[in-house]
Amino acid sequence: MGIIAIQSYLIISLFLFLMGIFTTISRKNIIGIFMGIELILNSSALNFAAFSRFSAHNLEGQLFSIFIIVIAAAEAAIALALMLSIYRRFGDIDADKLDSLKG
């Protein structure tokens, strides 16, 4: 029972979370950014599940993870639609080109 403790889950989710952030920031492609976000969401869902298992001992944590997953799915749909329209409009989906909001 040694290592399947909450610490390891925390470390895994932390790792996932950090890689998620790294990907979101460094990727030039919008889809890359989207992947980073998915990783972050996963890491948080994992965390919820881990805590629900190890400390809260009730299922609410898991329930919350489910919510996160559902939202992630919704978000993916929207992201896809946006990407399609951006692609059609701008011709490519390079994040740097989309700076019309530049100050």
């Binding site: 998915e38 996963n42 992630a72 799915a73 993916a76 749909a77 989906i93």
Partner: peptide
């Protein structure tokens, strides 16, 4: 959801764009 839904969408997006 994640693999079946999100990842498939992702692939769609990549292939379309």
């Amino acid at each position: 959801i994640y693999i079946g839904g999100v990842l498939v969408l992702l692939l769609f997006a990549i292939l379309l764009t």
